[in-house]
């Protein structure tokens, strides 16, 4: 049984466009993601300082409670054409983008 599912977005941004992508995510995605049941757990920047001649990667870690919530998220995004339009706008600022889905893989407790 799969429990909590994490959604990891990695946005590798063209030099000079970090703030543009941050603004897009904040103003164009986060409210809709929350409405679709996604919880923003953490954001990161790597390398950990903005570069001027190489891309940086912005990492967003989201979560949904379970597989049913995952499908609810997926269905809502599929029914809203603005979501694909949003990612097209982000992709225009990026050299690469990946989304991965993660589940807990902690070692089982001794004796279980």
């Amino acid at each position: 049984m799969v429990g909590k599912i994490h959604v990891l977005d990695e946005l590798t941004v063209e030099p000079g466009r970090l703030n543009e992508v941050r603004r897009l995510m904040t103003e164009g995605y986060m409210a809709g993601a929350k409405a679709r049941g996604m919880t923003l757990e953490q954001t990161w920047l790597t390398p950990p300082i903005e570069l001027f001649d190489q891309p940086n990667t912005l990492v967003y870690l989201w979560s949904v409670p379970d597989a049913a919530a995952w499908w609810a998220m997926r269905g809502a995004a599929g029914r809203d054409p603005s979501v694909a339009g949003f990612w097209a706008e982000v992709d225009a600022c990026c050299v690469d983008r990946q989304r991965r889905f993660l589940v807990d893989d902690s070692p089982a407790e001794e004796g279980r």
Partner: peptide
């Protein structure tokens, strides 16, 4: 529908949020 193989891998070909989507909605 609830298999992680489905939602975690296959659906990426269908999902408009995924860069590798190739299937019409």
């Amino acid at each position: 529908m609830m298999s992680p193989h489905h939602w975690g891998l296959i659906d990426g070909w269908f999902d408009p949020e995924m860069p590798r989507q190739i299937v019409d909605l």
